[in-house]
């Protein structure tokens, strides 16, 4: 719990410093993308800290490559 809170704090701190910069240059689309990205990352980070298994992207690659490899062997 404490770890999750710490992670949230870090993310909020970063957002506080990044968003005004973007706002200054009137990049609204970027702010939206940034926020979505940050929320996504924060969620993953909190899941990770709480030992929730997260799918490994390499497994995905392996899964898609397997049929091709089988073809050759």
């Amino acid at each position: 719990m404490l770890k999750s809170l710490g992670i949230l704090l870090i993310f909020i701190a970063i957002a506080i410093f990044q968003i005004p910069q973007l706002a200054k240059e009137k990049m609204n689309k970027e702010i939206v993308i940034f926020s979505i990205f940050m929320v996504f990352t924060a969620v993953i980070a909190i899941l990770k800290v709480n030992d929730v298994p997260i799918p490994n992207p390499l497994e995905l690659i392996a899964y898609t490559l397997d049929p091709i490899l089988n073809l050759f062997s």
Binding site: I10, A13, I14, F17, Q18, Q21
Partner: peptide, 13 residues
């Protein structure tokens, strides 16, 4: 400003 962010990140870590 960039430096400030960086500094804060750095201290947090």
């Amino acid at each position: 400003m960039k430096k400030v962010i960086f500094f804060i990140l750095f201290t947090i870590v």
